[in-house]
Simulated scan of single mutants.
Amino acid sequence: MSVPVDARVPWVAMYHSVGDCSDDPYRITVTPERLDRQLTWLARRGLRGVSVAELLAAPDRRRLVGLTFDDGYADFVTGALPVLREHRCTATLFVLPGRLGGDNAWDPLGPRKPLLTADGVRRAAAEGIEIGSHGLTHTDLTRADDLTLKAETAESRTVLAGLLGTDVAGFCYPYGTVDARAVAAVRDAGYDYACAIDPGPLNGPHALPRVHVGQNDRAVRLFLKYRLHGLRRRPVEGL
């Protein structure tokens, strides 16, 4: 069944960890098996998962879905990458260059999940995954002072570019929280685009809306999320 949507409202799916979801108080984890079924659902409807950079650059986005993975969990390489490869999908992985090789210390309820090392990030990039910044340390930019805001946006981009040996085009707001000041800082840092969750009136290339996809999203829920996205979100001007 074909389910094209308005190309002016690009559909971007938000994932996090891909692995064991038995202890998951924030509901941010999907199993590799669930991710496989979700990508199969897309493929059967003529849709293909791609990185955000590829999605935004495409002259016709109606058959493309942006796939994003926040935080840079180590299980991206072991859990997500083989599934993406199987489905011939690309994706954008938003990492925290100030926490490489650490864990998700910002989540008070746990459980502690290891983050990719620098070598892990480079391995993902070598597999065709777009690498973007999620800030240096997963700080809420709407509460950051000027110095922290610049470090989380501009400095994180510089560090990642040095690690990868290439430019970094995309940013993702930690916690999805965004305000006009944060958008301006991201734009001034030189990013081509940035992902939020539901940016409201700030909706635009530097505050793209996304849809959370979790372990409980089977066929019916995916269909509703996909179809309702274009009705709930405004067209993104300037793309």
Rank of each mutant, 00 (worst) to 15 (best):
Y26E: 10
K113T: 13
G162V: 03
G200F: 13
R210V: 04
P235C: 13
L47I: 05
R227Y: 04
D198L: 05
V9E: 02
E86D: 13
L228G: 11
D71A: 02
D70L: 04
F94I: 02
E86T: 15
P32D: 09
L224A: 14
G110P: 08
E237S: 13
A118R: 11
A43C: 01
H87K: 03
A43Q: 13
A91N: 09
P235E: 03
L163W: 04
A124W: 08
V186H: 01
A194N: 03
L239D: 04
L56E: 07
T78Y: 02
Y73P: 00
G19W: 14
R227K: 05
P201M: 08
L147W: 10
D6Q: 13
R37A: 15
V30E: 01
P82F: 11
G132Y: 09
P209G: 04
V186G: 01
Y15N: 08
R45M: 09
R157T: 13
N216Y: 01
D188M: 00
G128Y: 10
S156N: 03
Y26L: 14
V9A: 14
T68L: 02
T158H: 13
W106Q: 00
D36R: 12
S2W: 15
L42E: 07
S156G: 06
V65G: 00
P199Q: 10
T148P: 01
R34M: 11
T92G: 00
Y15P: 07
H206I: 07
V77A: 11
L42S: 01
